[in-house]
Nucleic acid binder design. Structure first.
Lengths: 146, 146
DNA sequence: AGTGAATGCTTGAGGTGCTTAAGTAAACAA
DNA sequence: TTGTTTACTTAAGCACCTCAAGCATTCACT
């Protein structure tokens, strides 16, 4: 118990591994997005639009300034992947909605994350369940804004 | 076993969870870096400098163009966190070395990733080992440049 | 109602990150 | 020697990001 064994990784090792996997997945996502002429930021925004969303809500989700979202949505709108709609109840609000083409593009981006899909396929049902359970336990603590 | 049970997540669920955790960790890292006046990119570069590293090697590690690294190292050097040294064997090469202050800053950034550390602390030794083993199996497939 | 504060969005300035193209210097190979 | 490759830098151009300011609308309180 005193020495480091392969079975008990140090926190630093676990942290490094987690970072490496996060980086790899992000690169896979960015590459798939680029394949469709999108930056990763644009793809990330598009990925949030399962329904209409106010600019402000988008900024909150992305944890960035609202003025930043203006530019990103401008570019997406310029490509016809997104639309700005007036809100029915608050005339200050503009709801962002994905167009049919926008939904189609983000669906394809998700499908084309080959490296990530391939890696996940190497896990059996039981291992997937174990991994999912462990990560689910990690998630709430990680998203806490300390 | 035939129906979807809470124990057998779909690949999409697992993918989403992995993305959420990757994002959360990245934000934690960026926040800690910002706390020391660094951008996340600058911190990432500093994190690679356990020893002297040529500009070219740095670019390869970051998977970006060499001209990009010039600017990042310029800014780090301007703050005295990094030094460019001539290479003993190849006069074309400039080795980047972290200064004492640079090493100190990146050490503190790592320590201050509170959210991540806290989340990892909720896992016992056995769970950590299990998670580590599963992630280690995932890693090679994810880093494959397909 | 009427007035002041808070909210949602946009614009503009300034800095960082990233890529491509071009240029310099040094190493290498024929 | 001559020609090619390699390491780094510079410059132009765009995307991202923040802050400060400004406009329109809504809200809260008297």
């Amino acid at each position: 118990m005193s020495a480091t064994t392969p079975e008990t990784p140090t926190k630093l090792q676990l942290l490094e591994l987690l970072a490496a996997i996060g980086t790899a997945q992000w690169r896979d996502f960015a590459a798939a997005a680029a394949h469709h002429g999108l930056t990763s930021t644009q793809a990330k925004v598009l990925a949030q639009l399962s329904g209409p969303l106010p600019m402000r809500a988008l900024a909150t989700l992305l944890v960035c300034d609202a003025s930043n979202v203006t530019g990103i949505v401008d570019r997406l709108e310029g490509r016809g992947l997104v639309r700005r709609e007036a809100d029915a109840h608050d005339r200050r609000v503009k709801n962002v909605v994905a167009t049919d083409e926008g939904r189609d593009v983000i669906r394809r981006v998700r499908e084309e994350m080959q490296a990530t899909h391939g890696a996940l396929d190497t896990l059996g049902a039981e291992d997937s369940a174990t991994l999912y359970a462990l990560l689910a336990r990690l998630r709430p603590g990680m998203e806490k804004d300390a």
